[in-house]
Amino acid sequence: MAQVVSVPRRVSDEALSPELLVQMYDLMVKARVLEERLIRMQKQGDGYFWIGGPGEEAFSVPLGLLVHKGQGPEFDYLHLHYRGGGTMLALGADPVDALRQMKNTATDPYSGGRNFASHYSVRKWNVVPVSSPIEVQYAMAPGTAMAQKRAGGKGITIVTGGDAGTAEGEFASCLIWSSRKGHELPVLIVVTNNQYGISTPYDGQHGEKRVSDRGAAFGIRSLTIDGNDPETSYRAIRSAMDYVRTERKPFFLEAMVSRLYGHSSSSGANFVSEEADCIAQFEAKLEDRKILTRARMSELRTKYTEELLEASKRVREEPQPEPEDVWKHVFAEENMVGKAARKDGAS
């Protein structure tokens, strides 16, 4: 059960514009509806496995909105884990592509039918391939951040993962490599803490009160926030990013979030009513503040639900990869990452 942590004073509580709140709400609903469609598809046999981020939208959506999107070290690199659907939609991803990955079609732009749902990869947006081994992204993040520090621009590296995974060595690697004296790196280290690793509760596995307490030993500024509140998330991510962008130093942001459909399809992917639902909470606020009406909000949900239902039927008809496709791209023929990132012409 996600505990609610008060917002520390360091983050400004300046009001966000109603337009931004509506934009965040829209994306949060779209992300939730997408996850629910993916879960349905898996249950109906239109996919082998589901994992995703329902319950993390109040954090993942603002994160995506604040990213400097683009290709190469001048822009932000994203080393996401498998709960980043909201971030992807906020970046502008087409939700139908996520359905394609669920159905493992040849048209799946993220992996060509090779990988599970929510394993995104978009080179033109610096979204590094999501992979299933827990925590490996934290070992790669210092590398992209080094390139960014060298490039001299404003690009930062953002790495996300869960709470249980912070027990892995790569998490320590990330803290160490990003805080070396004189070699500090522009990394926004994010942990979305849902207080579980599959079935194992946080309590009993961790001596530290909060995961973010570990930042202090490395001189890394750290903060734990209520990630179920999109306004808190937006402000905290923005100020953390500002710090990382301008100081070129790491920041550690822990967001307390919910896990609304359990761990994955392996644990049934059924709605968990005991945990806080960030969308329901946000809806109450938006109604209260007269920013959106109930009718408008349910209209939106219905619209996305219908759109994605129709899209999932179309995706069903798209081709599957051919057996001989397994041999494609074992090796790269050219240095694609080098071309985009290096301006001096060297490949």
Binding site: G72, P73, Y77, H79, V128, V136, Y138, A139, M140, A141, P142, G143, T144, A145, M146, A147, Q148, R150, T157, G169, E170, S173, I176, W177, R180, V337, G338, K339, A340, A341, R342
Partner: peptide, 21 residues
């Protein structure tokens, strides 16, 4: 740092960001 996993991970990250490690 004395961290083989960090070495390999950072090399991957550098490579992905267009460096040649």
């Amino acid at each position: 740092p004395l961290d083989e996993r960090g070495i390999v991970g950072s090399a991957i990250g550098l490579a992905l960001a267009g460096q040649k490690p």
